[in-house]
Amino acid sequence: MVELRASVDPALVVAIAESWLGTPYLHQASTRGLGTDCLGLARGIWRDLHEAEPISPPPYTRDWGESSGREVMWEAARTFLIEIPMGAAEPGALILFRMVANGPAKHCGILVSGPALIHARETTGVTREPFTLPWRRRAVAAFLFPG
């Protein structure tokens, strides 16, 4: 039997993501205005929605091409979020990206209108940029935040 969970209002997710714009990049951090990485942005949105995180993530590397064979980020997203088909993703969805063809999905961001993406990049911090074809080609999964 499939468990059906209601998602949170996507407009609220977008508003929270926008409140992180301009936060500098800091690997493994998750503090709005001070420093975050892409996972930290997703964690911060979760905290704003649910007041606490369900788990603390283990240490992780910046290496896009890890060859462990495990989809750690994808597995965690499936545990706590609501997976939807990529084609059904609309503003407010968390998108996972595979940055290296044979590597695991190790980047994420929030889809917003435009279409655009709010995500944390090492070179720019939390930014909004167009959801262009290169990003769409790397997108492998989409999720909604549960209510």
Rank of each mutant, 00 (worst) to 15 (best):
L41V: 09
G44W: 08
H107R: 05
L49K: 08
A101L: 13
L96Q: 08
L39E: 12
G35W: 11
A17M: 03
L96P: 00
L21S: 03
G40N: 08
E83H: 02
P104Y: 03
S113F: 08
R98Q: 12
I118V: 15
L12E: 15
K106F: 05
G92H: 02
E51M: 10
R98L: 01
L21K: 10
P59R: 13
H119G: 02
V8C: 12
L49C: 11
R43S: 10
A89Q: 07
H27D: 03
A42D: 03
S67W: 06
G22T: 09
G87C: 08
V72N: 04
P104A: 14
A76M: 13
R43H: 10
I95D: 01
R70V: 14
C108H: 00
A89M: 02
I55Y: 12
R121Q: 15
W64D: 11
S30K: 06
E75T: 12
P58T: 12
I82P: 00
L49H: 08
R43Q: 14
T36I: 00
I82D: 00
P85K: 06
P91L: 04
V8M: 07
E3T: 12
G40E: 08
N102T: 10
W64K: 04
L96W: 00
S56K: 09
T31F: 10
I84P: 04
P57D: 14
A89D: 05
V72R: 09
V8Y: 03
C38I: 09
P85S: 07
R62H: 02
A15W: 02
A89F: 04
S30N: 09
A6T: 11
L12V: 13
Q28H: 09
I84N: 03
L12I: 11
G35C: 13
V72C: 02
L4R: 12
M99D: 11
S19V: 04
P104W: 03
P91M: 01
E51P: 01
G65M: 05
G69F: 07
I118F: 09
W46Q: 06
A93L: 03
Y60L: 11
T36H: 02
L34Q: 15
P59S: 10
P115E: 13
A6Q: 12
P104T: 05
E83W: 01
G87R: 11
P91Q: 02
M86I: 15
A15F: 01
A88P: 00
G33F: 10
A6N: 11
E90M: 08
R47E: 11
A77F: 11
V8E: 13
T79P: 00
P91I: 01
A77R: 02
A15D: 09
S67T: 14
E53T: 12
A89K: 03
R43K: 14
R47I: 14
L12T: 15
D48M: 14
L117G: 04
A93G: 04
A101C: 04
L12F: 01
E66D: 14
F80L: 07
P24C: 05
I16V: 15
M73T: 11
D48N: 14
M73L: 15
G109F: 06
E90D: 08
T23P: 05
V112T: 14
L117Q: 04
P115D: 09
P104S: 10
A88E: 15
A88W: 06
S113Y: 07
E66T: 12
I16C: 06
L12M: 11
